[in-house]
Design a protein around this nucleic acid. Structure first.
Lengths: 127, 127
DNA sequence: AATAAAATGATAACGGATATTATTTTATGA
DNA sequence: TCATAAAATAATATCCGTTATCATTTTATT
């Protein structure tokens, strides 16, 4: 992967915005914060795809219309609040050894997975 | 929900096809098996949405372009093989008490979730 | 500096899903 | 059982997130 200014901005912006933005959201932020960059939406999609194939970004399939992205590729899950629509991190230790358990039980080799819980977050419950 | 012949066919066909079809696939099967029914694709989508809101059908977000549906609404997970693209069931006991664990740990109230593993199934590994 | 490979911007195109609308079917109850 | 309102349907236009295309620019290599 060759260097590009745009990719640097994309990675940088995703890292600074740990809110798990969609490609579109990320594009908006970049346009706002780097108006000189003249970056195109296709470039954002192209790079997020490339980075997620390379394992440098995690794609989150959030039971919604569009995908979200996360610069944290360490094992963890997500929780999306149905009211405020925010996405929170959930530590992976609530369900240990999933890959091994599945292999032992079924012989299936898990290479990737994505766990997204839906519900109401703590602060939205109080409202 | 009022009765309709089309909805009956949709439920019936989904029940008989435990392969977790997409709306489009289901539509094709119905056209083939009930050519007299003249069912429209929008009706299939409309009913699957309605049935899943009513909890009578489970929507599966399979890290793919389109959604799949499952008539089995009991708690279980899914495994999608990257080679043969088949979707298999995984029993829920590999990760017990997720909802409770999340609530205890974070205060978030989980109302729904969807776990889809990706990888290579047993028979595709041999090839 | 010359060249090839990679990346970009602009935008057309794709495709899954939904909205629209006129029509038909179902449920209700007089 | 007929009249009426609500629900559902078929056909299709539309929406919108994402990808493909392609001419141009940038990066890496020698």
């Amino acid at each position: 992967m060759n260097y590009s200014k745009q990719r640097e901005i994309i990675i940088d912006t995703l890292t600074k915005n740990a809110v798990h933005p969609t490609a579109e959201k990320l594009y908006e932020i970049i346009k706002r914060e780097h108006p000189e960059s003249k970056i195109g939406i296709a470039t954002v999609y192209r790079n997020l795809n490339k980075l997620s194939s390379a394992g440098k970004v995690k794609r989150i399939n959030a039971l919604e219309d569009s995908e979200h992205f996360d610069n944290n590729t360490h094992e963890h899950y997500h929780f999306m609040c149905n009211k405020c629509k925010q996405i929170f991190d959930i530590e992976a230790d609530i369900a240990p050894d999933l890959v091994k358990k599945i292999f032992d039980k079924t012989g299936f080799l898990v290479t990737d997975y994505d766990i997204v819980f839906n519900g109401i977050c703590k602060s939205c419950q109080k409202k």
